[in-house]
Design a protein around this nucleic acid. Structure first.
Length: 109
DNA sequence: ATAAGGGCACCGC
DNA sequence: CGCGGTGCCCTTA
């Protein structure tokens, strides 16, 4: 389970439906590490295959697109997000909250 | 093994 | 409403 934080993060990205996006924090929470949102960035920053893992679907909590280590940098990221049907203005996603994908939050009774 | 970096989030002023 | 500083956690060198 938490043996491979990196793996979990990448795996989670694959579960994001097209047209949906997530924030770094959401990803962190999804792998049960609510405070590891920064680590998520580290993972994505590492060598990975953008084609295999939709790292471009991960944005900031404030709606900004955020950075992107892949080819084309943040520019390409925005472009892709636009292709997904999102509206971007001034580096920020309009109504990004509507597109946020949240998986079942594990509630511990 | 240690140190520095980083694709962030939040709070205060 | 915007900017700056601080805290947290992995990855890579």
């Amino acid at each position: 389970m938490d043996k491979d934080f990196k793996f979990q993060v990448l795996n989670f990205l694959k579960k994001i439906p097209k047209g949906n996006i997530v924030t770094y924090k959401i990803v962190a929470s999804s792998v049960n590490r609510p405070n590891s949102y920064r680590a998520v960035g580290s993972v994505l920053r590492g060598n990975l295959f953008p084609e295999k893992f939709p790292c471009y679907k991960v944005i900031k909590s404030n709606g900004e697109v955020g950075n992107y280590s892949g080819p084309g940098g943040q520019k390409a990221k925005q472009k892709i997000l636009k292709s997904e049907g999102l509206l971007i203005k001034n580096n920020k996603i309009i109504d990004f909250q509507k597109y946020l994908f949240k998986i079942g939050k594990k509630r511990m009774p």
